[in-house]
Design a protein around this nucleic acid. Sequence first.
RNA 1: GCUCGUGUGGUGUAGUUCGGUCCAUCAUGUCGCCCUCUCGAGGCGACGACCCGGGUUCAAAUCCCGGCACGAGCACCA
Length: 497
Amino acid sequence: MAATNPEALHREKQKKRVGLKELPNAEQGKVVLRFAPNPNGPLTLGHARGVSINSEYAKMYHGKVVLRFDDTDSKVKPPMPAAYDWIKSDYEWLTGTKADIIIRASERMPVYLDHAEQMLAGGFGYVCRCSATDFKKLRDGKDACPCRPRSIEDNLIDWKLMIEGNIAEGEAVVRVKTDMDLPNPALRDWPALRIQHSTHPMVGERYKVWPLLDFQSAIEDHQQGVTHIIRGKDLMDSTRKQTILYSHFGWTYPETLYWGRVKVHDFGGFSTSGMRTDIENGIYSGWDDARLPTLRALRRRGFNATALRAFWIDLGLTQKDISVSLQTIEAFNAKEIDANCERRAFVRNAVCLDLITEIDESNPGDIISISKHPDGAIEGSRIWNLGSRKILVEKQDAEIETIRLKDYADISNINGKAIVQSWDRSDKRPIVHWIPENMAREAELSIPHGMELRSVNGMIEDYELKIGQIIQLERVGFAKIESLTDDLPVKLIWLHS
RNA sequence: GCUCGUGUGGUGUAGUUCGGUCCAUCAUGUCGCCCUCUCGAGGCGACGACCCGGGUUCAAAUCCCGGCACGAGCACCA
């Protein structure tokens, strides 16, 4: 045997860093972050990343999160009045707290319009009356458009016409002056505000000129003292555009971090507008349809907010475009909820057997008690009455000759007769779940599976069932009790295994 | 086309700042074994990766150069 290097034995294995990376230039108590959704529907699993990461950083640095509704477009992505409250409650559900500051861009219009005027008066912005296509042509050739050199006075006159509603939509736009030689064409004299005469669901027809995201967001971040922006990397050019605007105003741009695109294999993308259309067309029953990746749907199915946050924080903040599996989220969820879920039996394709027992001194009798949770995480027992001498097992299990009825007895199963062979576990025969026939109640388990909703019928153990309760169906998986109506089967909604 | 960004096992991540302590972390997954009571649970174990090619160096996942692949932006959407 060769000599062992003692150092090699003591070498420490490297550890995985836990939690989020440090934020650059972050000072305890002074960090201000923001989460800025478009209120065109409730929050999705994708938004949950933004909410989780931002709120976690706020917690780490004892900072604040601004929840801002970016509702400055009423034509392409019109805001949904109901969505403001949905998002607020989705946010609260997920983080367990209210956002520190909540604002709507549409109520802050005077601020944006005022800054637009400052920009024009300062000569670093101008009103452009070229058509979008003409401008694009000029911009691609690094050529300034004819409106650019006009005087501040002329710009202010046009601006007045714009905000008074005297210029039609598409006829004018306010641009931020940049270097036309910028290598990135997307940045050259980018548009800051445009005309929209449509009715805004929150403020009506009060405003004729609306800021675009890059302008509105930049001004508002400064107003709120945002120190760190975390956004999708598709918005990298926004950062560059806004940095130019900030330097015009003499402000310092916040630290900016990015994440890549996320897909959850089982859902695909998270298009809110796509879901909205499908709901309107009756493909889905509503925003909480179990097949949808909305937070409300996930919550309805029994996903836990802490688990969802833990999942996103574990993923961390990287610029890679990723595709994750729902299975991973489910594993986080199972870990989180297991200790709180009572067990119940659910027998699909039930087969009824006659229970035959010999009277002997080890016979536990007709009243047996089974723990609500295998390792006692939940106290108490379920009390079963075997008085009817009839039991239900799954058809598949009934085809096996010798099985063990979980927590009861080893039996031989021949011709519909379950004959007790031993009370104690006597060999390695399979353990199956079962229920006394007189304690069984019909149930329907609804399982979302991609575009379809599968339904599995069976008999559930009717013991202390409560509506809204998440239980673990032994050997099947977690499910939530959706409805408990007399005379109707219990409705269960599938969570995961 | 122009601009920007990213490349670590099946998936996702740690490590990359300041090269060695990395025969590369953890989770999820898959497979196997165990189980005195969920074989869709639990326990244990195994599997599996630094995009490619050069270079610098005693030493590279880490630094340099060149490829390649993938993604995003180039909206009067967010």
